[in-house]
Simulated scan of single mutants.
Amino acid sequence: MQALEFTTTITDGMIKVPLIYALKPHAAVKVIVLFDEAAVPADAEHPHQDFQAVRIKTKGYVFNREEAHAR
């Protein structure tokens, strides 16, 4: 196994390997990521979360307007 070392940035969750290393397509690799915590942008601490669809069964539910207003 060979070891390569280079510095890059992560873009859209992807790490690009420089072309000078000419890896074969679909090559199996082992990735170890080291990063400086001080260099991480403040907005990266709370990454954007995608919302998942929510399904609620309402069959047989009766809406009571008076009860809703009482709350």
Rank of each mutant, 00 (worst) to 15 (best):
A70I: 00
E37Y: 08
H26S: 10
E67R: 07
Q49L: 14
Y61N: 11
K30P: 00
R71M: 14
A27K: 09
K59W: 09
T11L: 08
A68V: 13
M1K: 03
V31A: 06
K16A: 12
E45P: 00
D36M: 01
I10Y: 02
A3C: 06
D36K: 00
V17M: 08
A22R: 15
P18C: 02
F51I: 04
A27F: 08
F35N: 09
F63I: 14
P25H: 04
E66L: 12
I56Q: 05
V31S: 01
Q52I: 10
H48T: 14
F63P: 04
R71L: 14
V29K: 02
V17H: 00
K59R: 12
V54K: 07
F51G: 14
A3H: 13
A22E: 15
I10G: 03
V29E: 00
I32F: 10
A70S: 15
D43A: 04
T7H: 06
I32N: 04
F35Q: 09
Q2H: 10
R55I: 12
A39T: 08
K16N: 06
V40G: 00
P41R: 00
Y21L: 06
K30N: 12
A39M: 11
Y61I: 15
Y61G: 02
V17G: 00
A27C: 02
V54F: 05
H48C: 04
A39V: 05
Q49C: 03
A28V: 02
V17C: 01
A70M: 07
G13A: 02
P41A: 03
E67S: 03
A28Q: 13
V54H: 05
V62W: 05
I10C: 11
P25R: 01
A3F: 06
I20W: 10
Q52E: 13
N64V: 09
R55L: 13
H69L: 15
E5C: 08
I15Q: 01
E66A: 15
D50E: 12
G60H: 02
K24F: 07
V62A: 15
H69Y: 15
Q52P: 02
H26T: 14
A68D: 12
E45L: 14
L4F: 12
D12R: 05
K16E: 11
V31Y: 01
F6Q: 04
F51W: 08
V29Q: 07
L34E: 15
Q49K: 11
A3Q: 15
E37A: 13
V33G: 03
F35A: 12
I32L: 13
L34W: 01
K59E: 15
H46C: 04
R65F: 09
V62M: 06
I15H: 05
V29F: 00
Q49M: 12
V54S: 10
V29H: 00
H48S: 10
R65N: 10
N64W: 08
I10R: 06
A28D: 06
V29C: 06
A53S: 09
L4W: 01
Q52M: 12
P25G: 00
V62C: 04
Q2C: 01
V29S: 01
A39L: 07
I20H: 06
F63G: 03
H46V: 10
V33C: 08
E67V: 09
P47D: 08
N64Q: 03
Y21G: 03
T11H: 09
D12M: 06
F6M: 03
